[in-house]
Protein backbone atom coordinates (compact mmCIF):
# COMPACT_ATOMS: atom_id res chain seq x y z
CA UNK A 1 0.00 0.00 0.00
CA UNK A 2 1.50 3.36 -1.04
CA UNK A 3 1.38 6.43 1.16
CA UNK A 4 -1.38 7.88 -1.03
CA UNK A 5 -3.51 4.79 -0.60
CA UNK A 6 -2.84 4.94 3.14
CA UNK A 7 -4.05 8.55 3.11
CA UNK A 8 -7.43 7.25 2.00
CA UNK A 9 -7.66 4.65 4.76
CA UNK A 10 -6.74 6.33 8.04
CA UNK A 11 -8.08 4.27 10.97
CA UNK A 12 -11.28 5.81 12.35
CA UNK A 13 -9.99 5.60 15.94
CA UNK A 14 -7.01 7.78 15.07
CA UNK A 15 -9.44 10.35 13.66
CA UNK A 16 -11.57 10.18 16.82
CA UNK A 17 -8.52 10.75 19.00
CA UNK A 18 -7.38 13.66 16.84
CA UNK A 19 -10.84 15.18 17.08
CA UNK A 20 -10.83 14.91 20.88
CA UNK A 21 -7.39 16.54 21.02
CA UNK A 22 -8.27 19.46 18.75
CA UNK A 23 -11.42 20.10 20.78
CA UNK A 24 -9.67 19.81 24.15
CA UNK A 25 -6.73 22.04 23.18
CA UNK A 26 -8.61 25.35 22.83
CA UNK A 27 -10.79 24.57 25.84
CA UNK A 28 -7.76 24.02 28.08
CA UNK A 29 -5.30 26.55 26.70
CA UNK A 30 -7.68 28.97 25.01
CA UNK A 31 -7.95 30.16 21.41
CA UNK A 32 -9.35 33.66 21.34
CA UNK A 33 -10.64 34.88 18.01
CA UNK A 34 -13.10 37.64 17.17
CA UNK A 35 -16.71 36.47 16.98
CA UNK A 36 -18.56 37.96 14.01
CA UNK A 37 -22.19 38.99 14.40
CA UNK A 38 -24.25 38.27 11.29
CA UNK A 39 -27.31 40.33 10.21
CA UNK A 40 -29.49 37.32 11.12
CA UNK A 41 -28.27 37.42 14.74
CA UNK A 42 -28.68 41.21 14.87
CA UNK A 43 -32.28 40.61 13.74
CA UNK A 44 -32.96 38.57 16.88
CA UNK A 45 -31.38 41.20 19.12
CA UNK A 46 -33.35 44.02 17.51
CA UNK A 47 -36.63 42.11 17.71
CA UNK A 48 -36.19 41.69 21.48
CA UNK A 49 -35.23 45.36 21.83
CA UNK A 50 -38.28 46.49 19.84
CA UNK A 51 -40.81 44.37 21.72
CA UNK A 52 -43.18 46.72 23.62
CA UNK A 53 -42.93 46.42 27.41
CA UNK A 54 -46.65 45.93 27.89
CA UNK A 55 -46.54 42.75 25.82
CA UNK A 56 -45.17 39.33 26.63
CA UNK A 57 -42.74 37.10 24.75
CA UNK A 58 -43.04 33.33 24.50
CA UNK A 59 -39.85 31.27 24.44
CA UNK A 60 -40.68 27.93 22.82
CA UNK A 61 -38.50 25.04 23.95
CA UNK A 62 -38.65 22.05 21.63
CA UNK A 63 -35.37 20.32 22.42
CA UNK A 64 -33.95 17.91 24.97
CA UNK A 65 -30.61 16.68 26.22
CA UNK A 66 -29.53 15.63 22.72
CA UNK A 67 -29.01 19.19 21.50
CA UNK A 68 -28.51 20.91 24.84
CA UNK A 69 -25.09 22.29 23.81
CA UNK A 70 -26.69 24.20 20.94
CA UNK A 71 -30.11 25.19 22.22
CA UNK A 72 -29.49 25.92 25.89
CA UNK A 73 -27.05 28.81 25.26
CA UNK A 74 -29.62 30.30 22.84
CA UNK A 75 -32.41 30.08 25.41
CA UNK A 76 -30.22 31.45 28.19
CA UNK A 77 -29.06 34.40 26.07
CA UNK A 78 -32.68 35.20 25.14
CA UNK A 79 -33.86 34.93 28.76
CA UNK A 80 -31.02 37.16 29.92
CA UNK A 81 -31.84 39.75 27.27
CA UNK A 82 -35.54 39.84 28.23
CA UNK A 83 -34.71 40.14 31.92
CA UNK A 84 -32.06 42.83 31.33
CA UNK A 85 -34.65 44.93 29.51
CA UNK A 86 -37.41 44.23 32.08
CA UNK A 87 -39.59 42.51 29.51
CA UNK A 88 -41.98 39.72 30.47
CA UNK A 89 -41.64 36.26 29.00
CA UNK A 90 -43.22 32.82 29.27
CA UNK A 91 -41.55 29.50 28.46
CA UNK A 92 -43.59 26.83 26.69
CA UNK A 93 -41.93 23.42 26.35
CA UNK A 94 -42.78 20.67 23.90
CA UNK A 95 -40.09 18.37 25.23
CA UNK A 96 -40.25 16.93 28.76
CA UNK A 97 -36.50 17.31 29.29
CA UNK A 98 -36.41 20.76 27.72
CA UNK A 99 -39.08 21.78 30.21
CA UNK A 100 -36.73 21.17 33.14
CA UNK A 101 -33.62 22.51 31.43
CA UNK A 102 -35.32 25.79 30.58
CA UNK A 103 -36.92 26.11 34.03
CA UNK A 104 -33.55 25.54 35.75
CA UNK A 105 -31.80 28.05 33.45
CA UNK A 106 -34.46 30.70 34.00
CA UNK A 107 -34.27 30.23 37.79
CA UNK A 108 -30.50 30.77 37.79
CA UNK A 109 -30.59 33.85 35.52
CA UNK A 110 -33.58 35.26 37.35
CA UNK A 111 -31.86 35.01 40.74
CA UNK A 112 -28.73 36.59 39.24
CA UNK A 113 -30.72 39.53 37.83
CA UNK A 114 -33.05 39.75 40.87
CA UNK A 115 -36.24 38.86 39.02
CA UNK A 116 -39.28 37.13 40.49
CA UNK A 117 -41.06 34.06 39.19
CA UNK A 118 -44.71 34.74 38.48
CA UNK A 119 -44.13 38.48 38.27
CA UNK A 120 -41.34 38.91 35.71
CA UNK A 121 -41.45 35.51 34.02
CA UNK A 122 -43.42 32.30 33.99
CA UNK A 123 -42.92 28.73 32.82
CA UNK A 124 -46.03 27.21 31.23
CA UNK A 125 -44.62 23.69 31.46
CA UNK A 126 -44.62 20.81 29.02
CA UNK A 127 -47.33 20.17 26.43
CA UNK A 128 -47.60 17.09 24.16
CA UNK A 129 -45.89 17.91 20.85
CA UNK A 130 -48.51 15.98 18.88
CA UNK A 131 -51.09 18.53 20.04
CA UNK A 132 -49.19 21.47 18.56
CA UNK A 133 -51.57 22.12 15.65
CA UNK A 134 -54.81 22.03 17.70
CA UNK A 135 -53.11 24.19 20.37
CA UNK A 136 -52.11 26.76 17.75
CA UNK A 137 -55.75 26.99 16.62
CA UNK A 138 -57.02 27.69 20.10
CA UNK A 139 -54.48 29.49 22.29
CA UNK A 140 -54.19 32.69 20.18
CA UNK A 141 -57.82 33.48 21.12
CA UNK A 142 -57.56 32.90 24.85
CA UNK A 143 -54.04 32.35 26.16
CA UNK A 144 -54.90 31.86 29.83
CA UNK A 145 -57.75 29.42 29.25
CA UNK A 146 -55.98 27.28 26.67
CA UNK A 147 -52.61 27.10 28.36
CA UNK A 148 -54.33 26.60 31.71
CA UNK A 149 -51.64 26.11 34.35
CA UNK A 150 -47.94 26.78 34.82
CA UNK A 151 -45.19 24.21 35.43
CA UNK A 152 -46.16 23.96 39.12
CA UNK A 153 -49.86 23.48 38.40
CA UNK A 154 -50.82 27.06 39.38
CA UNK A 155 -53.67 28.46 37.27
CA UNK A 156 -52.21 31.15 34.99
CA UNK A 157 -54.94 33.63 35.93
CA UNK A 158 -53.50 33.79 39.46
CA UNK A 159 -50.04 34.92 38.33
CA UNK A 160 -49.38 38.70 38.11
CA UNK A 161 -47.09 38.20 35.11
CA UNK A 162 -50.18 37.31 33.06
CA UNK A 163 -51.96 40.61 33.81
CA UNK A 164 -53.28 42.10 30.59
CA UNK A 165 -52.35 39.04 28.53
CA UNK A 166 -55.51 37.78 26.88
CA UNK A 167 -54.99 36.97 23.23
CA UNK A 168 -52.17 36.64 20.72
CA UNK A 169 -52.33 40.41 20.22
CA UNK A 170 -50.78 40.75 23.68
CA UNK A 171 -47.86 38.54 22.67
CA UNK A 172 -45.05 40.71 21.31
CA UNK A 173 -42.58 38.05 20.21
CA UNK A 174 -42.27 34.30 19.73
CA UNK A 175 -38.77 32.91 20.19
CA UNK A 176 -38.68 29.37 18.84
CA UNK A 177 -35.67 27.35 20.03
CA UNK A 178 -35.81 23.90 18.55
CA UNK A 179 -34.06 20.76 17.44
CA UNK A 180 -37.13 19.58 15.56
CA UNK A 181 -37.89 22.30 13.02
CA UNK A 182 -41.56 22.90 13.79
CA UNK A 183 -41.11 26.60 12.91
CA UNK A 184 -43.37 26.23 9.87
CA UNK A 185 -46.36 25.50 12.13
CA UNK A 186 -45.80 28.68 14.11
CA UNK A 187 -45.49 30.63 10.87
CA UNK A 188 -48.53 28.96 9.28
CA UNK A 189 -50.94 29.23 12.19
CA UNK A 190 -49.67 32.23 14.18
CA UNK A 191 -47.48 34.54 12.11
CA UNK A 192 -49.56 34.06 8.95
CA UNK A 193 -52.97 35.03 10.39
CA UNK A 194 -51.91 37.34 13.27
CA UNK A 195 -48.51 38.72 12.15
CA UNK A 196 -46.85 37.99 15.50
CA UNK A 197 -43.07 38.51 15.09
CA UNK A 198 -40.95 35.35 15.38
CA UNK A 199 -37.25 34.86 16.04
CA UNK A 200 -35.70 31.46 15.51
CA UNK A 201 -33.07 29.49 17.39
CA UNK A 202 -32.57 26.21 15.52
CA UNK A 203 -29.75 23.72 15.77
CA UNK A 204 -27.16 24.48 13.10
CA UNK A 205 -28.42 21.53 11.03
CA UNK A 206 -31.57 23.50 10.27
CA UNK A 207 -29.90 26.84 9.66
CA UNK A 208 -29.69 26.50 5.88
CA UNK A 209 -33.44 26.05 5.34
CA UNK A 210 -34.32 28.80 7.85
CA UNK A 211 -33.00 31.42 5.42
CA UNK A 212 -36.10 30.74 3.31
CA UNK A 213 -38.34 32.11 6.09
CA UNK A 214 -35.88 34.89 6.92
CA UNK A 215 -35.98 36.23 3.36
CA UNK A 216 -39.80 36.06 3.28
CA UNK A 217 -39.97 38.19 6.44
CA UNK A 218 -41.65 35.38 8.36
CA UNK A 219 -38.91 35.44 10.99
CA UNK A 220 -37.10 38.57 12.14
CA UNK A 221 -33.80 36.88 12.88
CA UNK A 222 -32.10 33.60 13.58
CA UNK A 223 -29.39 32.17 15.81
CA UNK A 224 -27.51 29.45 13.91
CA UNK A 225 -26.81 26.87 16.62
CA UNK A 226 -24.12 27.43 19.23
CA UNK A 227 -22.24 29.93 17.06
CA UNK A 228 -25.41 32.05 16.86
CA UNK A 229 -25.66 31.92 20.65
CA UNK A 230 -22.01 33.02 20.93
CA UNK A 231 -22.68 36.02 18.68
CA UNK A 232 -25.74 36.86 20.77
CA UNK A 233 -23.68 36.61 23.96
CA UNK A 234 -21.23 39.04 22.39
CA UNK A 235 -24.05 41.52 21.73
CA UNK A 236 -25.15 41.18 25.36
CA UNK A 237 -21.55 41.75 26.51
CA UNK A 238 -21.27 38.42 28.27
CA UNK A 239 -18.99 35.42 27.87
CA UNK A 240 -21.03 32.29 28.37
CA UNK A 241 -20.50 28.66 27.39
CA UNK A 242 -21.07 29.36 23.68
CA UNK A 243 -18.36 32.03 23.58
CA UNK A 244 -15.87 29.77 25.37
CA UNK A 245 -16.60 26.95 22.91
CA UNK A 246 -16.02 28.89 19.67
CA UNK A 247 -12.28 28.14 19.67
CA UNK A 248 -12.99 24.41 19.78
CA UNK A 249 -15.59 24.86 17.05
CA UNK A 250 -12.96 26.49 14.83
CA UNK A 251 -10.29 23.87 15.47
CA UNK A 252 -12.66 20.95 14.88
CA UNK A 253 -13.81 22.47 11.58
CA UNK A 254 -10.18 22.88 10.51
CA UNK A 255 -9.49 19.23 11.32
CA UNK A 256 -12.44 18.03 9.23
CA UNK A 257 -11.38 20.20 6.29
CA UNK A 258 -7.80 18.92 6.61
CA UNK A 259 -8.99 15.30 6.67
CA UNK A 260 -11.22 15.78 3.62
CA UNK A 261 -8.33 17.41 1.74
CA UNK A 262 -5.93 14.59 2.74
CA UNK A 263 -8.42 11.95 1.61
CA UNK A 264 -8.88 13.73 -1.71
CA UNK A 265 -5.15 14.14 -2.32
CA UNK A 266 -4.76 10.41 -1.85
CA UNK A 267 -7.75 9.74 -4.09
CA UNK A 268 -6.60 12.03 -6.95
CA UNK A 269 -3.00 10.82 -7.00
CA UNK A 270 -3.98 7.15 -6.77
CA UNK A 271 -6.51 7.60 -9.57
CA UNK A 272 -3.98 9.37 -11.77
CA UNK A 273 -1.44 6.59 -11.26
CA UNK A 274 -4.02 3.96 -12.05
CA UNK A 275 -4.96 5.84 -15.24
CA UNK A 276 -1.28 6.08 -16.26
CA UNK A 277 -0.78 2.37 -15.65
CA UNK A 278 -3.89 1.55 -17.66
Amino acid sequence: MTIFEKLQHIDRRIMYLLLLLVIAWPLIWGMDMPIMVSPAVKGVYNAVEKMPKDKMAIIIVYWGSGTIAENRPQVEALMRHFMMRNKRFAVLAFDPQGSKFSYDSAKIISSELHKTYGKDWVHWGFRPPANLIPLLQSFPHDVIKNIGTDINGTPLGKLPVMNGIKTIKDIGLLADTTSVGELDYWIAYVHGPYRTPIVYGPTAVMTADAFNSLDAGQINGLLPGMQGAAAYEKMLGRKGFATKATGALSSSHLLIIALIILGNIGYIITRRRQEQQA
Binding site: I10, M15, L19, T67, I68, A69, Q97, I256
Partner: peptide, 17 residues
Amino acid sequence: GSTMFSTIGFFIVSAAY
Protein backbone atom coordinates in the same frame (compact mmCIF):
# COMPACT_ATOMS: atom_id res chain seq x y z
CA GLY B 1 -28.75 11.82 26.32
CA SER B 2 -26.32 14.50 25.26
CA THR B 3 -23.43 12.02 25.09
CA MET B 4 -25.43 9.65 22.86
CA PHE B 5 -26.14 12.43 20.39
CA SER B 6 -22.61 13.78 20.55
CA THR B 7 -21.18 10.49 19.26
CA ILE B 8 -22.54 11.52 15.85
CA GLY B 9 -19.77 14.16 15.90
CA PHE B 10 -17.17 11.39 15.68
CA PHE B 11 -19.06 9.54 13.00
CA ILE B 12 -19.52 12.62 10.82
CA VAL B 13 -15.75 13.21 10.80
CA SER B 14 -15.12 9.66 9.69
CA ALA B 15 -17.95 9.76 7.13
CA ALA B 16 -16.89 13.12 5.67
CA TYR B 17 -13.31 11.88 5.31
